[in-house]
C-alpha cells in the first residue's frame, strides 16, 4: 500500500478551524490534498452520527477542527465536540478499528501554519494505519 492516498474529512468551525485553514491558504502553506473540509457554524453542531457517516462512506480518517478551548464563539461547542469525538473513538475501539482515525484539534483563526502542520501529521498517521475497512470494502465494490 505504498501509494495509498487516504481520504480525510475535516469538520471545521466557521470562526476558527475554517479560518485557520483559509489562513494557511493566504500564506500559501501547503498540506496534503487528502484533507477535505466541511464547514460547520460551530463544532458543537457536528453530530457523532456525522463522524460515523463519514467513516461509513469511505473516509479513512475524520477530524474536527475547533476554536481553542475557552475561545468557542458559542461558549462551549468545542468541548461538546471533544465529547463526541471521544464517544466515537470508544465505538471504533469496540469495533476493533483504530480509534486514531478520529481526532479533535483546536486552532485559533490565526493558526494557519499549525493547521497545515496538523493536516500533514494526521494524513501521515492515517497513511501509516492504511485504508479503513470501510474504504477497502467500498473500493472493492467499484
Amino acid at each position: 500500500m505504498d501509494n495509498f492516498e487516504p481520504e480525510i474529512v475535516a469538520f471545521c468551525c466557521h470562526y476558527c478551524g475554517y479560518t485557520a485553514a483559509d489562513m494557511a491558504g493566504t500564506r500559501r502553506i501547503s498540506y496534503p490534498s487528502n484533507v477535505k473540509i466541511i464547514r460547520v457554524p460551530c463544532t458543537g453542531k457536528v453530530d457523532a452520527i456525522h463522524l460515523m457517516k463519514a467513516l461509513e462512506k469511505g473516509a479513512d480518517g475524520v477530524y474536527i477542527a475547533a476554536c481553542l478551548e475557552g475561545d468557542c464563539h458559542f461558549k462551549d461547542g468545542n468541548l461538546r465536540a471533544v465529547a463526541h469525538v471521544e464517544k466515537i473513538k470508544k465505538t471504533l475501539e469496540d469495533l476493533g478499528w483504530e480509534p486514531e482515525r478520529v481526532a479533535m484539534m483546536n486552532f485559533s483563526a490565526a493558526m494557519g501554519q499549525q493547521f497545515a502542520q496538523a493536516a500533514e501529521e494526521f494524513t501521515e498517521k492515517i497513511k501509516a494505519l492504511g485504508p479503513s475497512p470501510a474504504s477497502q470494502a467500498t473500493s472493492k465494490a467499484v
Binding site: 453530530d47 457523532a48 452520527i49 460515523m52 457517516k53 467513516l55 461509513e56 465505538t91 471504533l92 469496540d94 469495533l95 476493533g96 478499528w97 479503513s132 475497512p133 470501510a134 477497502q136 470494502a137 467500498t138
Partner: peptide, 19 residues
Amino acid sequence: RKEVGLLSSAIRLNSAKAG
C-alpha cells in the same frame, strides 16, 4: 433516533471490517 443512527452506523462499519 440518534442512538439508532449511531448503532446502525457501527454495525455497518463492523460489516465492512468483517468483509
